[in-house]
């Protein structure tokens, strides 16, 4: 197990090194370079040279990269072009709001997906299964920000049940989290269905039934324990998507999290903050993947011992 964890961590380090290369390469995509972007279209060649000198952009690319990498590894994400404040604290301060949104969204998608997914698998091709299938596909087909807009229109503006924007009261999180969780619910529903359906065919469940266990115990205790494994992976993969979706949802609901902050800085083309934010998201996804793999190895001993 220790060996497995070490190998897994080693892999992630390489992925993160690749991530830094990609984030750094993003700056090279700026048409005309960062200096032209800061100064505007009618900057003179001298001004551009001056800015490049001040930001160290006149050095060879690999020197710039290694310099930046060295700082990032030490937790120094640089300062914002916008307000000259250090970037990392500003991002981390907004993390709890985003995490709250993600957790509640995940909770919503699970309470929607679990019952429908289980029923669909127990009674495949029934009416309920088909309704579930349509619901799931509908869930992944609707843009989450549009669901958010409709929720605001109906439940905030017309009915006044929930606040439309901000994070003042505990009810604030409900609408954004629901809008965010809908598409994940659709994906989870399908995953739970197919995974459980496969397990339900196995012989050990015949044994369980033959022992005289009730169908409820057979499905929920014996079958679900094995069926849940692929579902865990799906959830982990989806959290990355939720994180991406949260940027849009936070903007729609003026939710004071990392995503909205990141978006506003993107509009201002605040390159250091965008780079820092991308790094933070990537680290988050990598940690999540490691945790998933470890959970998986914990639940399924076959993985621990084989290659």
């Amino acid at each position: 197990m220790v060996l497995y964890i070490l190998r897994r961590l080693f892999q992630s380090v390489w992925v993160l090194v690749g991530v830094t290369v990609l984030v750094f390469a993003l700056v090279q995509l700026i048409p005309g370079g960062p200096a032209l972007m800061i100064l505007g279209e009618d900057a003179t060649a001298e001004q551009i040279t001056l800015v490049n000198q001040r930001l160290g952009l006149d050095r060879p690319l690999h020197v710039q990269y290694l310099d930046w990498l060295g700082k990032v590894v030490r937790g120094d994400f640089g300062v914002s072009f916008q307000d000259s404040r250090p970037i990392l604290p500003d991002l981390l301060n907004r993390m709890p709001a985003t995490l709250e949104l993600l957790v509640v969204a995940m909770f919503f998608s699970l309470i929607i997906a679990l019952p429908i997914g289980i029923i669909s698998a127990v009674k495949p091709n029934s009416l309920l299964d088909n309704v579930g299938r349509v619901l799931a596909l509908l869930g992944v087909s609707m843009p989450s920000f549009w669901i958010g807009l409709l929720l605001i229109m109906v439940f905030a503006r017309n009915l006044g049940w929930f606040p439309a924007v901000g994070r003042e009261s505990w009810t604030s999180v409900i609408m954004p989290a629901f809008a965010l969780g809908v598409s994940m619910a659709g994906i989870l529903m399908r995953m739970i269905r197919s995974s459980l359906l496969e397990v339900l065919r196995e012989d050990y469940l015949k044994t369980a039934r033959a022992k005289g266990l009730t169908e409820k115990v057979v499905v929920l205790k014996h079958a679900m324990r094995n069926a849940i494994l692929p579902v865990i992976t799906t959830i982990a993969l989806q959290v990355g998507n939720l994180l991406g979706g949260s940027v849009v949802i936070e903007t729609v609901f003026a939710w004071p999290g990392m995503g909205r902050f990141c978006y506003m800085r993107m509009l201002q083309r605040d390159i250091p903050t965008i780079m820092g934010n991308l790094m933070l998201y990537a680290v988050f996804v990598c940690i999540l993947n490691i945790v998933t793999d470890l959970l998986y190895a914990y639940f399924d001993p076959r993985i621990r011992y084989s290659g």
Binding site: G240, G244, V247, Y263
Partner: peptide, 15 residues
């Protein structure tokens, strides 16, 4: 490793 939406937004904001 990047959430697709965020990566796409970052590219759009620089391009």
């Amino acid at each position: 490793a990047f959430p697709q939406m965020v990566f796409a937004m970052a590219i759009m904001s620089v391009r």
